[in-house]
Design a binder for these strands. Structure first.
Length: 240
DNA sequence: GCGACAG
DNA sequence: ATCTTGTCGC
């Protein structure tokens, strides 16, 4: 496992963070289909927090997209880099997630984020942000509709309905299990919405949530539990 | 101005 | 996200 420090120049105020989003969102690529489902690697990333101890743990779990077998995994711990503010989630999660991705022994392939991409107040959610910073294809799969509206998808697994910001389709409500609450899929970077939904469905053969986020969620919780009380070591805190 | 709001 | 036991159902 690796430890991270909040990057120099990381936004401190909400105004600064919004300005960063407005600047970076021009670099999102939306006209690529992305990798075909069922091929190559698919990586789930997730983060767990202990705000009391000021510790954050991230995990990245690489799956074989065809078999959903775990190919590789990594974790990283750091200190909380931003408070939770709806619309600014990325600033809370990204430094540690990047460290976990960097620690992987193999290419991540498509990255599946726990949250949103395009479906965001400024159209630049966590998945978009992570995609722009890494250049990797990314998608967002969220458990809640956030501020967006949608109609109930039909009962069978695989049914979808548009996730709407007014009349703009910013994502899709996708039912991954018959008659169970849908997940909310949106595009991050370099992946089409159709493809993002196909990947999500392929990654969720048995549970509501994709295996990528289930695996990453379990791993980052373990990493958080195993992190040193009071937070990870800081450069210079120990000898030499 | 008030409430809602990914994780 | 996190705090938290049992319980109904396949």
């Amino acid at each position: 496992m690796t430890t991270v420090r909040t990057p120099a120049g990381w936004p401190v105020t909400e105004e600064e963070a919004r300005a960063v989003q407005d600047r970076l969102r021009t670099r999102v690529v939306l006209d690529e289909p992305g990798p075909p489902p069922g091929t190559g690697h698919v990586t789930g990333v997730d983060v767990a927090y202990d705000d009391e101890r000021d510790v954050v743990a991230a995990a990245a779990v690489v799956l074989d997209a065809a078999t959903l077998d775990v190919v590789a995994r990594s974790t990283a711990v750091g200190r909380v880099s931003f408070p939770y503010v709806p619309g600014l989630l990325a600033f809370r999660e990204i430094p540690t997630v990047l460290a976990a991705l960097d620690a992987l022994p193999c290419p991540p392939g498509l990255v599946v984020c726990d949250g949103y991409g395009l479906a965001h107040p400024r159209r630049f959610g966590l998945a978009s942000h992570l995609g722009v910073l890494t250049g990797l294809p990314t998608i967002g799969v969220a458990k809640n509709p956030f501020t967006f509206t949608h109609e109930e998808p039909d009962t069978p697994r695989g049914s979808t309905s548009p996730l709407l910001a007014g009349r703009e389709e910013v994502g899709r409500a996708l039912r991954t299990r018959d008659a169970v609450k849908p997940v909310f899929v949106s595009v991050g970077h370099r992946v089409s919405l159709d493809n993002a939904c196909a990947h999500t469905l392929a990654l969720a053969p048995g549970y509501r949530l994709p295996e990528t986020t289930r695996r990453a969620d379990a791993l980052c919780r373990r990493a958080l539990a195993g992190a040193a009380p009071g937070g990870p070591p800081v450069q210079g805190e120990y000898g030499a």
